[in-house]
Amino acid sequence: MVDDILVRALLDEGLPPLSEPEPEIDAPDLPPGGVAIDVRGLTKAFGETSVLHGIDLHVRSGEFLSVIGKSGCGKSTLLRLLAGLDQPSGGEVLFDGAAAARTAHIGRLMFQEPRLLPWARVVDNVAVGLGDRRRSVHAPRRALAKLAAVGLEDRADDWPSVLSGGQKQRVALARALASSPNFLALDEPLGALDALTRIDMQALVEQIWREQGFTAVLVTHDVTEAIMLGDRVILIEDGIVKLELAVDLPRPRHRGSPEVAALEKKILRYLFDDGSYQPRQRAA
């Protein structure tokens, strides 16, 4: 009876009837918190080529893990497996101790390219990230709020083609955050940006991560970036974890501070002494 009245009232208002209860949707966004990730004996082969030969990894809930390694070392493959875009050839990935399909956590992947829909306005691109809630009446408001979080609320009605590279990647970040993920995978998302925009974006990613408390895994080829953002840095080489290094520095960290420089040196020395790694030139 009560439901009936509610439905009729909503129809009179011209609003779609609620097929599922929505109070939680209108509730203010609480920081989603993270999810612990356990990777056990993970392998991945493409045909004859084996890319990952048994990765074991534990990422604490809310931890920021940086993954570095040279091109083709399998770091992006690892990330795609974590994000569920590909299926592993062997081993398993557990979220809070359960297989991905059986947990309620939300995982999002931020790609190296912005991958915005060119035919959708900026705000509608962010709404894509709302997942199941993108059809809700609150979707535009929520999308705008996420856009505001990356400082682009005034570009909401623009087409993506008029934005700069950095702005596009910020929209992509807002889209990834729209569904308040517990796990955010970042696949070199800042790799194509110029050096100054990159520093801004690193600060933004760090700030949002601290506010939201999600678990973050960042794949990068930039050692400084890995140290600036990560609680821990791992180096992948030849499909296995070669080096693991805790970064116990207070945040916000300072680019060029002696502690950061020392860690950077440590990693680079390892890479050079190992002989197989040539640091990639940073994109200009």
């Binding site: 875009l85 999002r108 992947l109 790609f111 991958r115 894509v128 990230g129 997942g131 199941d132």
Partner: peptide
Amino acid sequence: EMGRSYGM
């Protein structure tokens, strides 16, 4: 791929 990863 983006669309799929966002659950479309």
